[in-house]
Amino acid sequence: MAEAPPRRLGLGPPPGDAPRAELVALTAVQSEQGEAGGGGSPRRLGLLGSPLPPGAPLPGPGSGSGSACGQRSSAAHKRYRRLQNWVYNVLERPRGWAFVYHVFIFLLVFSCLVLSVLSTIQEHQELANECLLILEFVMIVVFGLEYIVRVWSAGCCCRYRGWQGRFRFARKPFCVIDFIVFVASVAVIAAGTQGNIFATSALRSMRFLQILRMVRMDRRGGTWKLLGSVVYAHSKELITAWYIGFLVLIFASFLVYLAEKDANSDFSSYADSLWWGTITLTTIGYGDKTPHTWLGRVLAAGFALLGISFFALPAGILGSGFALKVQEQHRQKHFEKRRMPAANLIQAAWRLYSTDMSRAYLTATWYYYDSILPSFRELALLFEHVQRARNGGLRPLEVRRAPVPDGAPSRYPPVATCHRPGSTSFCPGESSRMGIKDRIRMGSSQRRTGPSKQHLAPPTMPTSPSSEQVGEATSPTKVQKSWSFNDRTRFRASLRLKPRTSAEDAPSEEVA
Rank of each mutant, 00 (worst) to 15 (best):
M1L: 04
E3V: 14
E3D: 08
A4P: 08
P5H: 14
R7L: 12
R7P: 13
R8G: 06
R8L: 05
R8H: 12
L9R: 05
L9H: 10
L11R: 10
L11V: 03
P13S: 05
P14A: 07
P15R: 07
P15A: 02
G16E: 02
G16A: 03
D17N: 11
D17E: 05
A18V: 07
A18T: 02
P19L: 14
P19H: 03
P19R: 11
R20C: 05
A21S: 05
A21E: 06
E22D: 02
E22A: 04
L23P: 08
V24G: 06
A25G: 12
L26P: 06
L26V: 05
T27S: 05
T27R: 02
A28V: 04
Q30E: 02
E32K: 05
Q33E: 12
Q33K: 01
G34A: 07
G34R: 03
E35D: 08
A36P: 05
A36S: 05
G37R: 10
G39D: 02
G40V: 10
G40C: 06
G40A: 02
S41P: 06
P42A: 05
L45P: 03
L45F: 09
L45H: 08
G46C: 04
G46V: 06
L47R: 11
L47P: 02
L48M: 12
G49S: 05
G49R: 05
G49C: 10
S50R: 10
P51L: 10
P53R: 02
P53S: 09
P54S: 01
P57L: 01
L58I: 05
P59H: 09
G60V: 11
P61R: 07
G62V: 08
G64V: 09
S65L: 08
G66S: 10
S67T: 11
S67C: 04
A68P: 08
G70V: 11
G70S: 09
Q71E: 05
Q71P: 09
S73A: 04
S73T: 02
S74T: 04
A75D: 08
A75S: 11
H77P: 15
H77L: 07
Y80H: 08
R81P: 07
R82G: 12
R82P: 05
N85Y: 05
N85S: 10
N85D: 14
W86G: 04
V87A: 07
N89T: 13
L91V: 06
R93Q: 09
R93L: 04
P94S: 02
G96R: 05
G96A: 03
W97R: 03
A98S: 06
F99Y: 12
Y101F: 09
H102N: 10
V103G: 08
V103L: 02
V103F: 02
I105M: 02
I105L: 00
F106V: 08
L107V: 13
L108M: 03
F110S: 12
S111C: 10
L113V: 00
L113P: 02
V114E: 03
S116Y: 07
S116P: 15
V117L: 00
V117A: 15
L118Q: 11
L118V: 03
L118R: 11
T120S: 05
I121N: 06
I121T: 12
I121V: 04
E123K: 11
E123V: 04
E123A: 07
H124D: 15
E126G: 14
E126V: 04
L127P: 07
A128P: 06
N129D: 12
N129K: 06
L132V: 06
I134N: 05
L135M: 15
E136A: 00
E136V: 00
E136D: 00
F137I: 09
I140N: 06
F143I: 14
F143S: 12
G144C: 06
L145W: 02
L145M: 07
Y147C: 03
I148N: 03
V149L: 05
R150L: 09
V151L: 09
A154S: 02
C158R: 05
R159L: 13
R159C: 15
R159P: 12
R159H: 15
R161Q: 04
G162A: 04
Q164K: 08
R166L: 10
F167I: 14
F167C: 08
R168G: 11
R168L: 13
R171S: 07
K172R: 01
K172E: 00
K172T: 01
F174Y: 01
V176I: 13
I177L: 11
I177V: 11
F182Y: 03
V186M: 06
V188G: 00
V188D: 00
G192D: 00
T193N: 04
Q194P: 00
G195A: 02
G195S: 04
N196T: 00
F198I: 00
A199V: 00
A199G: 15
T200M: 00
A202E: 15
L203P: 00
L203M: 11
R204L: 00
R204S: 11
R204G: 04
R204P: 14
S205T: 08
R207S: 14
F208C: 00
F208Y: 00
F208V: 01
L209P: 00
Q210P: 07
I211L: 05
R213H: 00
R213G: 00
R213L: 00
M214T: 00
V215M: 01
R216H: 00
R216P: 00
M217L: 11
M217I: 14
D218A: 00
D218E: 00
R219L: 00
R219G: 00
R220C: 00
G221A: 06
G222D: 14
G222A: 15
T223P: 00
K225T: 00
G228V: 11
G228S: 07
Y232H: 05
Y232D: 00
A233S: 13
H234N: 09
S235N: 07
S235R: 15
K236E: 01
T240A: 01
T240N: 00
I244L: 06
I244F: 07
L247M: 01
I250M: 13
I250V: 14
F251I: 03
S253C: 05
L258Q: 02
L258V: 03
A259S: 03
K261N: 13
D262N: 04
A263D: 13
S265A: 02
A271T: 00
D272A: 00
D272N: 02
S273A: 12
K289T: 02
H292R: 10
L295M: 13
L295R: 01
A301T: 03
A304S: 06
I308N: 13
I308S: 09
F310S: 00
G319A: 11
G319C: 15
Q327E: 13
E328D: 12
E328K: 13
Q329E: 07
Q332E: 12
M340K: 14
M340V: 14
M340T: 05
A342G: 01
N344S: 12
L345I: 03
